[in-house]
Amino acid sequence: MANIRDIRRRIRSAGNIQQITRAMKFVSAARLRKAQERVIAARPYARRMTEVLESLAARVPEHSHPLLARRGDETIELVVITADRGLCGAYNTNIIRRALEFLNEHSGRKVELNILGKRARDFFRRRPYAVRHEAVGVLQQPTFADAAAIARDLIEEFSSGRKDQVWLVYNEFKSVVRQEVVVEPLLPIPRIESADEAGRLEYIYDEPPERIFARLLPRHVEAQVFRAMLEAAASEQGARMAAMEAATNNAAEMIEGLTLYANKVRQAGITNELIEVVSGASR
């Protein structure tokens, strides 16, 4: 039978851990709310941007812009967005696993990585993959300036012809409980559906539509990268909150089980002592 003092010590340490996990849960809940607000605040721009693009696409001949050029898939850049920190369940592992799957699927091609987040950086650093660019600390509070800088670098890489395709792998934020890892093509820009209703409108153009279209496309790519970063940031907090909630519950369960055990041990001890006293007296 275990020593009662050891059990008490374990109860105490489980209690200490529970305090920490509970605190972390509340911190991520607060951060999640802010991250969610940012995701929602960024939506009107992305939506309007898509609308304008769609109405323009109806008027501008396709493939007339370098960012729409389809060249095959010989050289690919994969942008992997993970968190900077751990303790968020399987969040980082899932993204890295999906990235590895992508690398396996394209093993015959030349794939270079573009890493955002410390977790992926540390993982791929120790492995033989080509990493072209890495950035950490940009996901705590994604700013559009950061996203635009990353997007411009990707656009340059693509339009210079060094890369035929650019893909994103990140965690999409569906809801607090539902998140999923997605792999999306970023460049060449996937086919833009031309709008029907807006397509019928007769526009006045302040400048040639081709030129406006050409200027809009890079902004569109920037907005896509920004959205992915915002979604990733929100997902990270959501995943951490869920993980810490589970850890807090597990600690509670453990404390309960250990307390029960401790009481049994204590009772057994008392019974033993009684037996000793009784048997001593009867002699």
């Binding site: 006045i204 153009y205 400048e207």
Partner: peptide
């Protein structure tokens, strides 16, 4: 707008500018 200031009143025709 890129080409100069532009006033828009209700009932303006569809327009796209920078």
């Amino acid at each position: 707008a890129r080409q100069g200031y532009m006033g828009i009143l209700p009932g303006h025709a569809p327009l796209l500018a920078e």
